[in-house]
Amino acid sequence: MSEPNLLTERRANIFVITFNREEKMNAMTRSFLDDLKAALDSVKFDDTISVVVLKATGKAFTTGYDLDGSDWILSQNPIDVSGRLNLDRDREDIKALLEYWWAMWKFPKPIIAQVQGLCLSGGGELIAMCDLVVASETAKFGHPAGRDLGIPPTVFLWPMLIGMKKTREFLYTARLFSATEAERLGLVNRVVPAHELEATVDALAADVARTPANNLAILKQATSRFYENMGLFASGDQAAELDAVFHQSETFVQFFAKAAEDGLQAALHERRRRFG
C-alpha cells in the first residue's frame, strides 16, 4: 500500500497537516491537492480548531507541481500530448486551479506554513495563501519554470506583496532567493536556524490560537479585503488567461515533447543546460 500524501494531527486547538511525499520532494499532484482540500475542509467549521499548520517531511517543503504526469494537476497531461494542449480546455483547467487557491485564500482560520529547504513554483502559490510563513535558514524560494513552462495564475501575489520591480526580476531570471531575502521582502515572517524551526512554529501557532477563533476569522477577513478591493481576483483571472497562452509557447512544447520522447529527467537535464 502506498504512503498517504498527507498526515494530520490534532494538538489541542491546532491542526497540523504534514506533506508526506518525501521521495518526490513533496511535489504537488492532483490527488495531493484533493487531499489537502479535504484536510482543510475537515476543520473549516470545527470550533475546536483555531489554527492550521502546514509542514513537510524530508529536505523540501515542496518543489511545486509534479511534472511526471502520472497524477497531473490539470485534465490534460502535457507529456501524453507532447506539450500541445487544447487552448480552450487548458484555459478552463487553469481557472479551476485558480479557484482552488482562492478557496484556500478564503479559508476562515489562520494557516501557518513551516518551510524547510526548497519551496518552488506552485509551492509559492501555496505559501501565498497562508497567513504566516516561518522559514528555516536553509529555505530557498523561486519559480524556475518562469523561463519556459508558464506563470502561476496567482503570480504568488508577488506584485502586491513585494512590488513590480522584484516580481519582474524573479520571473525574468527564474533565480532562487534565500529565506533571508524573502523575509526582507515581506514574503516570510520569520527566519530561524533549522534546529529551531519546529519549536518556533509551535510557539507561534499556540500564541495565535490564544485569540478566539471567531475573532481570528474576522481579523483575517478584514485584512484580506484590502487585497480583494485592489482587484486581486480580477488580476488572477487575467493571469490565468496568460498562463494558458504561455502553454502554447515553443519552450513549453519542446520541454514536454522531450519528456514524452526521452523521459522527464532528460527534459529537465536539457532545461538546466539551456537556462542554468
Rank of each mutant, 00 (worst) to 15 (best):
E99R: 15
P108C: 01
V192T: 08
V191Y: 04
D148L: 06
E183I: 02
F61E: 07
E196S: 12
C119D: 12
L87H: 14
S75Q: 03
Y172Q: 10
D93G: 07
K165C: 00
C119F: 08
P159L: 05
V115L: 07
W72H: 06
A194Y: 08
H143Q: 08
I151C: 08
D93S: 04
R84Q: 10
T138M: 11
G124P: 03
M160C: 05
L74C: 10
F107R: 03
R89C: 02
W105T: 03
E181L: 13
R84L: 02
L204Y: 11
D93Q: 08
V133Q: 08
A113P: 08
P159E: 13
R184E: 10
D202H: 06
G124E: 12
Q114T: 00
P108T: 00
M164S: 14
I162F: 10
G163A: 12
E183K: 15
R91E: 12
Y65C: 06
M164V: 13
Q116V: 02
D88M: 01
D80A: 14
E183P: 01
E198G: 06
G142W: 01
T180D: 12
D202A: 10
A203L: 10
F156K: 08
I73K: 11
R190A: 13
G64K: 10
E196Y: 10
I162T: 10
E125P: 11
L120W: 12
R184V: 00
I73Q: 06
D131Q: 04
D80Y: 07
E137I: 09
N189D: 14
P144V: 03
F107Y: 13
A60S: 14
D88T: 06
S121N: 15
N189M: 07
T62C: 13
Y65G: 01
G163S: 08
W105D: 11
A179R: 07
Y65K: 01
M164F: 14
T62K: 11
G150H: 11
N189W: 06
R84C: 03
D131M: 05
V191G: 05
K140C: 04
P152F: 13
P108W: 03
A60D: 14
A179W: 05
T167I: 02
V81F: 07
L132Q: 11
D68S: 07
P159S: 08
L85N: 03
V133W: 09
T62V: 07
M104I: 15
E169M: 06
Q116Y: 08
R190G: 01
E137C: 12
